[in-house]
Structure formats: C-alpha cells, structure tokens
C-alpha cells in the first residue's frame, strides 16, 4: 500500500490550490472575501468594512454586497467541487492551476432572499451543490452573521459548467 501523503504537505497542496482559485477573481478581492477550509468544506468570510454599507442610517450592508458575497461563495464552491477529484488524484497540481487558470462556471440565474438586515459586522456563507451535471448545476447558499441558525440571506443559483476537453 502507498504511504499516505504527510499531513502538512497535503494541507499546503489544498490551501495553495484554493488560494489560486480565489486569488484569480478580482471582484472577490475588491470585496475582501476570503475562504476558510476544513477538508473539502469551505466557508466564505466577508470581513466588515465601511464601503460595504448601503443604508448609512441603519446602518446596513448593501443588498448588492450580500448578493455578490453569495454569488462568489456559490461559484467558488462549485469550482472547488469540480476540481477536488483532479487535485486529490494528482492529475491537477496547484502549480499547473496557477499557470492555466481553470475555466469558471457561468451564472445563468441567481435569486437572493433577504431575510434580515445585514449588520455592520463580519458575515459568513456556505454553499451546497445540490446538483452538478456535465452542463448545468444548481447551488444553494446560506449566509449568517452572529448565529449560524439565524440566516440573514440565502440564495439559489443555476450555472453553466465549463466545457471539458473530452466533450
């Protein structure tokens, strides 16, 4: 039996692949979105900043920021799920990924449910790929601030998957 990959090496490989994927999306950087990873599970984090405010009277995070955060979380989760097997099997390396960035899924439609006011503090989101076929995918995203059980927004989106070489 092949010896398992040393844990630090494995973590480094996964983290650099994720950093390459997220780092390639300028708009995620503009909003300040980062991702935390536990195994294959991703949590998107949106640290609060003053420029994210939509209603200064309340104050509340702009609805467009919330929609953007959820859409970024959905696309990264879907791409991550799409690349995971290739990365784990070694067919794709983080270095090769950085040289030729993977094609990203394209949003077909995206529906956001605004459940509560976005407060001026950090926000978190987790996406779940409910269906991912060769061409189309359906993804659900949930976002919260202080309490995981008290969602402040959720969304469902449909995506067109990038065409693979063997298609």
């Amino acid at each position: 039996m092949k010896a398992p990959e040393p844990v630090q090496k494995l973590k480094h490989r996964r983290d650099s692949a994720l950093a390459t994927l997220v780092g390639a999306v300028p708009y995620a950087g503009f909003l300040g979105i980062r991702f935390e990873r536990h195994g294959d599970e991703l949590t998107a984090v949106l640290p609060y900043s003053e420029k994210l405010i939509g209603n200064p009277m309340l104050p509340a995070i702009h609805g467009g920021v919330i929609a953007s955060f959820l859409e970024v979380a959905a696309i990264i989760e879907l791409s991550w799920a799409m690349l995971w097997d290739e990365l784990e099997s070694g067919r794709l390396t983080p270095e090769a990924m950085a040289d030729t960035l993977p094609r990203l899924p394209k949003t077909i439609d995206f529906t956001v449910d605004y459940l509560r006011t976005g407060l001026p503090r950090d926000a978190y989101a987790r996406a779940r790929v409910n269906r991912s076929g060769r061409r189309y995918a359906s993804v659900h995203v949930e976002a919260w601030q202080d309490n995981r059980a008290r969602l402040f927004a959720q969304a469902t989106g449909h995506f067109l998957m990038p065409q693979r070489k063997d298609d």
């Binding site: 503009f30 909003l31 609805g63 953007s68 859409e71 970024v72 960035l101 995206f110």
Partner: peptide, 27 residues
C-alpha cells in the same frame, strides 16, 4: 473596472457587481 472582474480569463465583470447595480436601481 478591472477590480470588478469575475472571470480573469475573459475580463467579464462579476455577476455580483451587475446584481448590485440592479438592486440599487430597483431601490
């Protein structure tokens, strides 16, 4: 704006930025 790009391979603006524009305009 280059900072609003969603897919660097194409230079296309992120859907979220378009969404923010539509939401503001709707409001």
């Amino acid at each position: 704006d280059a900072r609003f790009v969603g897919d660097p391979a194409t230079g296309v603006i992120h859907g979220g930025a378009v969404s923010a524009l539509m939401d503001t305009c709707g409001g």
